[in-house]
Measured scan of single mutants.
Amino acid sequence: DRIFMTRTEALEFLLKAHQTAVDKIGHPSHKQTPADHAAIEALDRLLLDVRARRVDQFQINASAAQIIVTD
């Protein structure tokens, strides 16, 4: 599946995904793992790359739809 978004929409989408990941590892019942921190770092890099126009398409994980940034 493909989803087309403007750059602004894609950045909002990534910010929400980032916040969800941060909230998940901050929850008291969740045991933090290196994979959790790696996922947040990957989202940080992706946010910067989309914002800087170095990336025009991405996929958060293998089961997610491919996001295509349109400007």
Results as ranks from 00 to 15, higher is better:
residue 18 H to S: 04
residue 10 A to Y: 01
residue 25 I to M: 12
residue 28 P to L: 09
residue 10 A to E: 00
residue 69 V to W: 02
residue 6 T to H: 03
residue 28 P to I: 09
residue 49 D to V: 03
residue 35 A to Q: 12
residue 18 H to F: 15
residue 51 R to T: 08
residue 68 I to K: 04
residue 37 H to S: 09
residue 54 R to Y: 05
residue 29 S to E: 13
residue 42 A to F: 14
residue 43 L to F: 03
residue 11 L to P: 00
residue 11 L to N: 02
residue 65 A to E: 08
residue 17 A to I: 10
residue 34 P to W: 10
residue 67 I to R: 01
residue 18 H to Y: 15
residue 50 V to D: 00
residue 70 T to S: 10
residue 53 R to V: 04
residue 53 R to T: 04
residue 21 A to R: 04
residue 14 L to W: 00
residue 34 P to Q: 11
residue 8 T to F: 09
residue 2 R to P: 08
residue 48 L to I: 13
residue 16 K to S: 07
residue 8 T to H: 14
residue 61 N to S: 13
residue 36 D to H: 05
residue 43 L to S: 01
residue 34 P to M: 09
residue 49 D to W: 05
residue 8 T to N: 12
residue 40 I to F: 04
residue 49 D to C: 07
residue 1 D to G: 03
residue 54 R to V: 11
residue 41 E to P: 02
residue 46 L to E: 00
residue 61 N to V: 07
residue 50 V to H: 01
residue 18 H to V: 12
residue 51 R to A: 15
residue 7 R to G: 01
residue 64 A to F: 12
residue 29 S to R: 06
residue 69 V to N: 01
residue 50 V to L: 05
residue 52 A to S: 11
residue 42 A to M: 15
residue 21 A to I: 14
residue 5 M to N: 00
residue 68 I to N: 04
residue 44 D to A: 15
residue 55 V to F: 02
residue 59 Q to E: 04
residue 10 A to M: 01
residue 25 I to Q: 05
residue 60 I to W: 07
residue 51 R to D: 05
residue 21 A to H: 08
residue 17 A to K: 04
residue 36 D to K: 03
residue 60 I to H: 04
residue 39 A to W: 13
residue 32 Q to I: 14
residue 45 R to H: 07
residue 11 L to S: 02
residue 61 N to K: 06
residue 68 I to L: 05
residue 53 R to A: 10
residue 39 A to H: 10
residue 8 T to S: 14
residue 4 F to L: 08
residue 5 M to V: 02
residue 62 A to K: 10
residue 56 D to P: 02
residue 13 F to Y: 15
residue 4 F to D: 01
residue 17 A to C: 06
residue 9 E to C: 07
residue 36 D to Y: 06
residue 20 T to Q: 15
residue 51 R to C: 06
residue 26 G to V: 10
residue 54 R to T: 07
residue 9 E to V: 04
residue 8 T to G: 10
residue 5 M to S: 00
residue 68 I to M: 06
residue 67 I to Q: 00
residue 50 V to M: 03
residue 38 A to Q: 11
